[in-house]
Design a binder for these strands. Sequence first.
DNA 1: CCAATACTTAAGTGAATGCTTAACAATCAG
DNA 2: CTGATTGTTAAGCATTCACTTAAGTATTGG
Lengths: 115, 115
Amino acid sequence: MLNNQGALDQVFQALADPARRAMVERLTRGPAAVSELARPLDMTLSAVVQHLAVLETSGLVRSEKVGRVRTCRIEPKTLRNAEQWIAQRRAIWERRLDRLGEYLASQPEDDTSKE
Amino acid sequence: MLNNQGALDQVFQALADPARRAMVERLTRGPAAVSELARPLDMTLSAVVQHLAVLETSGLVRSEKVGRVRTCRIEPKTLRNAEQWIAQRRAIWERRLDRLGEYLASQPEDDTSKE
DNA sequence: CCAATACTTAAGTGAATGCTTAACAATCAG
DNA sequence: CTGATTGTTAAGCATTCACTTAAGTATTGG
């Protein structure tokens, strides 16, 4: 859990690109070869390999090569880290709103409705 | 819910920067002025204003100016959209693993444990 | 062996990012 | 009015990004 700072940078950066999100989306339906990931994308294989490198260094995807085929799969742990960062902020925000609600409810009606 | 594609691009892109995440983090504890957001960050006010612009066009933050002070607050709806994208991928992945588990459990033991 | 398949790597390019400085505008306090 | 706050905006600059083309390197099927 060290260096969570730069790790999140890389994960969110990786998810910021639609091609990379499409690749992640494909991989949630099961492992795939590089050219399978490339097929629906309107770019060269070379570009896809570079996107894959971004996904791998972010930790979102891992892959191994057997023969001439590299098979990729997602790493759900990394996905969960990103999810949790967001979920925690949202939780803090919502607790804050709850406390604010209680406070307002406990206040006497200060009806200063004249100019 | 239109154009969810580019919207997610912007949200994840916004979250990919540590200064911007720090600003979001600060705002989850309540609204703040621009110079309050700037104080802990080691950069000029100008840079902070530019980060704020990124956060606002992504929809993560909204702000209004009264007098000479601009007050910023987070927009939890946008945060939730990003969270849901991730949560959905993770859900699909986990359902997949469940089905795979059931399949393996239903298989006869193929104990080919000799060389 | 030979040619297709499945990547891999390097170099280059134009556009986007993350800053900075500097000059400016609009309050507000005394 | 005058100066200190609080931001805003433009310009410039170095770096990073998202590609492309081009030239490889294994593997594999026949």
